[in-house]
Structures are given as structure tokens and as C-alpha cells.
């Protein structure tokens, strides 16, 4: 019963507003006929609604709308300079919902800038330095390994790694077999 009352009370406001489906409204109406506690909830909500109307709906006594149109007309006739529109746009962007998108966008742009700074200003202290790295790759036609050392994307050193295989004599013409085939 308590669960049912909670469910009904959650819907009394919408029922008063006439926003429930026919069956939903009927369910609330029938329950209210037999439940004094929910009836009390309805009474409170009705009093709250009446008080809200009394406070909010009545117009303020000394507000004049005679000059309202002239204010709008002035805005229409005034030629706006570009910076007013620009600052208006920036001001709109600085409100919280837009700001939620702006913050990660700025962080991403800053990071991208730091990574690309090295390309435009080599040696800059702000730039993110890329480490020289060496990778062992098998790029020759004989399945042998090479170490590729890249420096600043301008200089690449390839070091051939020969395995000192048992019985292999490096001085007897093997060198020509190990030459790269690209």
C-alpha cells in the first residue's frame, strides 16, 4: 500500500495538470477516493499551486509597456558593429553548457599545438620532444634483422644486425649474400 501511495503521489501533480493518460488519470482518481493520506497530499499541492499563481501571475502594477516597442525598434535600427556581435557570441559560448564542450576542445588544441611545435620550431623548449627510438625490423630479403634509428625525422641510421652463426665464416664471401635487397 505504501509503495502504491508513493507511486500515486508522484503523479498527483501531473494529474492536476491534466497530463496523464485516461487510464493513468482514472487510476489516480480512484485511489484518491479511498486514501485520506494521498488526499491530503492533493490538498497541499492545490494550495501550493493557488499560492504560486497568486504570487507569479499578477502583473506588477507600475510596469509600463508603452516604450517597449521603441526599445525593440532602436535595436532593429541600430547598425551593429562587428565586435558587438563577436562579443555576444563569445559571451554565449562562455555559459556553462557551451563551456562543457569548450574546455576539452581547448585542451586538445593545446596538446596538438605542443606536438606540432617541434616541426615549426625545432629545439623549442615548449615543444614536446620526440624520443629517438630504435626498432628491430626484418626488412632485408634474407630474414635478417636491422635496427632502425630515427633522429628528428631527418636522419635515419640503419644498422644491420648479423647473427654470428655457428660455422659461418664472415670473411669468405658471405657478405654479398647478406646485402639488402631493396
Amino acid at each position: 500500500m505504501i509503495k502504491r501511495c508513493e507511486d500515486i503521489r508522484d503523479r498527483i501533480g501531473a494529474w492536476m495538470d491534466g497530463e496523464l493518460s485516461r487510464s493513468g488519470a482514472e487510476e489516480v482518481r480512484v485511489h484518491l477516493e479511498s486514501c485520506p493520506a494521498c488526499c491530503e497530499e492533493r490538498r497541499q499541492l492545490e494550495k501550493l499551486q493557488a499560492s504560486l499563481k497568486a504570487v507569479l501571475v499578477a502583473g506588477p502594477s507600475n510596469v509600463s509597456f508603452e516604450r517597449f516597442w521603441s526599445g525593440v525598434e532602436q535595436r532593429i535600427n541600430r547598425q551593429r558593429v562587428w565586435h558587438e556581435d563577436f562579443f555576444g557570441w563569445v559571451r554565449d559560448l562562455s555559459t556553462p553548457p557551451q563551456l562543457a564542450w569548450l574546455v576539452p576542445a581547448v585542451i586538445i588544441l593545446v596538446l596538438m599545438g605542443m606536438f606540432s611545435l617541434e616541426s615549426f620550431f625545432p629545439g623549442s623548449r615548449l615543444a614536446v620532444r620526440r624520443n629517438n627510438f630504435a626498432a628491430v625490423e626484418s626488412i632485408d630479403g634474407f630474414g635478417r634483422n636491422v635496427a632502425v634509428l630515427r633522429e628528428n625525422e631527418t636522419k635515419t641510421t640503419i644498422i644491420w644486425l648479423y647473427q654470428n652463426q655457428e660455422g659461418e665464416n664472415e670473411s669468405t664471401g658471405e657478405k654479398s649474400d647478406a646485402s639488402p635487397s631493396f
Partner: peptide
Amino acid sequence: VLEEQNEVEKDPFSNAHDKELRAGL
């Protein structure tokens, strides 16, 4: 502003209890 709103016609919050309700509201 809200004080003035209720001066328009008949004040619906005429007694003390209702005035407190209005202030609270």
C-alpha cells in the same frame, strides 16, 4: 516586484498567515 504584484487588485494574501506563506514562497 512581488510586493507590487499583489497591490494590483485584491490582495489574495490578506491575513498574517497567508502573508507569511507568501514571503516563504
